[in-house]
Amino acid sequence: MYDITLFTPQDMAKCSLVLRHLGRNTASMEATSQKIVNYIYQHFCDSQTGENSCALVRLFKTHPYGELEDSLQQSARRLMKGNSPATDMKCWTLLAAAGTEPQWNSRHTAAENTAIPLVSPKLVAQMPAISEIIRQFGLDIPTFLGIERERFLQLEPAVLNIFYVSEAKGSPLIPEQNSLIIPYQVKSVLGFGGLLPSGSLFAVVMFLKVKISQSRAEMFKDLALSVKTALSLPDEKSVFEYSENPTTFVTNNNNCETQLLEYQVATLMQLLDFSEQEMLRKAARFQQTIDNLQRELAEHKNKEQALKISQNSFTGILTIPNDAILQVEENHEIQRFNQGEEQI
């Protein structure tokens, strides 16, 4: 179990290890996604009460309309008032969910709209949660909607980030105020994700019943790569568990085995690069903290030394026995006097 308000680097390492391996021995990306949200929902709890820290956990992925299964295509067409999107149009697709209510534990019943067509930059900009996830992940909407292959190859390794809303209640970024945020007392919303090798964007979104800080939220950037690794293992297989025509992934084929091994090596290299970059970033931040403390300590010592010199000089003046010395404030009140004044 992990208490998100007390989340440590050790907890992060343990959670990351588990999530990274959830993509093994699964037939589809949807099955892997369900494992991921179930694990997060079940294992993030209040350390005192044991109550789940999340009201709801969702995992989204962008997917071409033409490759969606029928129920998801129907959801997309419903939002477009019966019109059919282009086959290559990206749709913001719910792959898995887990939460407090029984209906939240299946993508088929977890939300009214399970596939949202991303028609144009203008319309996407009017979707506050989606457009803000894109922005906080470090992308702009036009680039996101029309990533070219060359541009994507440059962006894919770098796009791993968080989506964070400190105060969920009343936030324009979270439209489900009356149906989710208020009745289930959601305090903060935290998401993390990035780009998959296929070119799809993925995001895990946690609706938290506790409030967390920006620094604590930043730690979840590390989990983005683990989830990416888990989702990428079945990325060449069928995406949807109940697809009528799932793509068969033949593991005993030498070419497929070679491709899988090459991908695993590339992922491990990316994991190593990411870990080293995070280590350097944290080391730089730690060094900056030390430098600031040393600077503050030096300033304190200088002030202390100046005060001591001032006090010694003033004390020496006050101890002169034959002269009367007074310390008078602006309001003419006497604050201090020496023995000479006392004798007078």
Rank of each mutant, 00 (worst) to 15 (best):
S75Y: 04
E67N: 11
E167P: 00
T93F: 02
I141V: 15
P157W: 07
L68P: 06
E69V: 15
F152S: 09
L145M: 14
I141C: 14
V165S: 02
Q154Y: 06
R151S: 13
S166T: 06
S131G: 07
P121A: 15
V159Y: 01
R149Y: 10
T143V: 13
R135K: 13
L139M: 15
A168V: 04
E148W: 03
L94Y: 03
Q126T: 09
R151W: 01
V165Y: 06
G138D: 08
A86C: 07
F163P: 00
V124H: 00
V119P: 00
Q154S: 13
M80N: 14
S131L: 01
F137Q: 15
A86H: 12
E112T: 14
R77H: 06
Q126A: 15
I116E: 12
K122M: 12
L153Y: 05
L160N: 12
L118I: 10
S131C: 04
L94M: 13
I116K: 04
A115R: 12
E67W: 03
Y164W: 11
V124L: 08
E148H: 10
P128T: 04
F144D: 05
L79N: 06
L118E: 09
L68F: 08
E112D: 12
I162F: 01
E156M: 14
P157C: 12
P85R: 09
T93Q: 01
G99F: 04
Q103A: 05
L68D: 03
L118S: 05
G146T: 10
A111W: 08
R77G: 01
N83I: 06
E150A: 14
G138M: 05
L118A: 07
I130K: 02
L95N: 02
L68E: 05
A110I: 11
I133S: 08
I147T: 13
K81P: 00
L118M: 14
G138T: 05
C91Y: 03
I147G: 00
E69Y: 07
D88H: 14
L68S: 05
L79Q: 13
E132G: 01
A125P: 01
I133F: 01
H108K: 13
L68C: 12
D70G: 02
K90R: 13
E101W: 01
A158T: 11
A96G: 03
E112W: 08
M89A: 05
T87V: 08
Q126D: 12
A115H: 08
A110N: 12
A111Q: 13
V165D: 03
T87E: 09
V124S: 03
V124A: 05
G138P: 05
P128A: 05
R107I: 08
T87S: 11
P102M: 10
P117D: 09
H108L: 10
M89E: 09
E67D: 11
P121W: 15
E101Q: 15
W104C: 07
W92Y: 14
